Amino acid sequence: MGTILITGGTGLIGKELTKKLTDKGYAVNILTRSPKNENEYSWNVKDNFIDKNAFTNVTHIIHLAGAGITDKRWTNNRKKELIDSRVKTTNLLFEKVKKHQVPIKSFISASGIGYYGAVTSDIVFSEEDKPKNDFISKICVKWEDAALKFEQLNIPVTILRTGVVLSKQDGALQKMNTPLFLSVLGEGKQYMPWIHIDDLCELYTKAIEDTNFKGIFNAVAPEHQTNESFTRALSVVLKKPMLPFNAPSFVLKTALGEMAYILLNGSRVSSKKTAKFYTFMYPDLNSALYNIYENRR
């Protein structure tokens, strides 16, 4: 079946993807700063180091590593960390694959819908649209440019621009299931492109198995939801009431600083190109939420 090397394998997506790939018969190697298990190998970007054994029999690399965008306030140091954790790690992988002449069949990288900027508009963004010029967009541009360098080695590249990932284990839904976020943020008109974690894992698997699934794709469900409609649907599934008032923009900006603008803005993102290759298991929010919370209609 092949051996897949995953960075960020101890994170939300990485853990679920590792499980699904292993269940399908793939061997999975994981790069981590603190190896604990037999299939985990050490790497350190500051020291320009990757354990060479991590590349043994590797057929594909899936690059998920990157500091959490919404984990901390965006100080200047944090901004540098957000970029370096994505770009420097990609450059290190490129350098080592080139040096050791690792014969991988493809390089598959995460990216974000932040490529299109944090804007609220009537535009439905597709993969052909140009990036904006805000900070979140700049991160994605630099990240993708680093990933595309693998094409210089005649290695096919797939990039998945990912929306809000829905999972019961952790992540966005866990944060939203709080008094602050089970309310409409700002005006609530901003769109929230999202994807069920099972669909996202299947897209990564498809990038391994389908030689035609190469290039840049939006990893978002076909259905468009605003912050208001998303929060309302979540409250119904959780059987918890929404707060009767919106969370004011100025409160979020005070609490979160510059990072607040990615919560207060958002446009629709098209999945049409992706849907030509993949049929979503959870194309609508209700089916995704009911699956995650194990309810039945």
Rank of each mutant, 00 (worst) to 15 (best):
A54Q: 07
F107T: 02
L263H: 09
I61A: 11
A67M: 01
N246K: 15
G11N: 08
T59E: 14
K46A: 14
K79W: 01
Y116A: 01
Q101Y: 02
T22M: 11
R86S: 12
K88T: 08
H100I: 03
M259P: 07
E209H: 07
N76L: 04
T22A: 11
N227D: 04
L31S: 08
K24F: 07
P241M: 04
Y204K: 05
T70M: 13
I61R: 13
K105A: 13
T205E: 10
N286C: 02
L31P: 07
G215S: 13
D170F: 10
L180Q: 10
E151I: 03
H60Y: 14
V28C: 10
A147Y: 05
R296A: 09
S42W: 09
E127T: 13
A27Y: 08
G188P: 11
I155N: 06
V58D: 11
H224I: 01
T18K: 15
Q169V: 12
N76H: 03
N57P: 00
G8R: 03
S267W: 02
K240M: 07
N39G: 00
I292P: 00
K52W: 00
G257H: 04
A260C: 05
H60V: 11
T231R: 01
N29I: 05
M242Q: 14
L200P: 09
N29K: 15
G2M: 14
T22D: 05
P283H: 01
K142Q: 15
D129S: 09
A207S: 15
N212I: 09
L243E: 11
T89V: 09
I113Q: 06
N91F: 08
W143Q: 06
V236S: 06
I262H: 00
A260I: 05
N37E: 13
T7P: 08
Y282Q: 03
K46M: 06
W43T: 11
G266S: 00
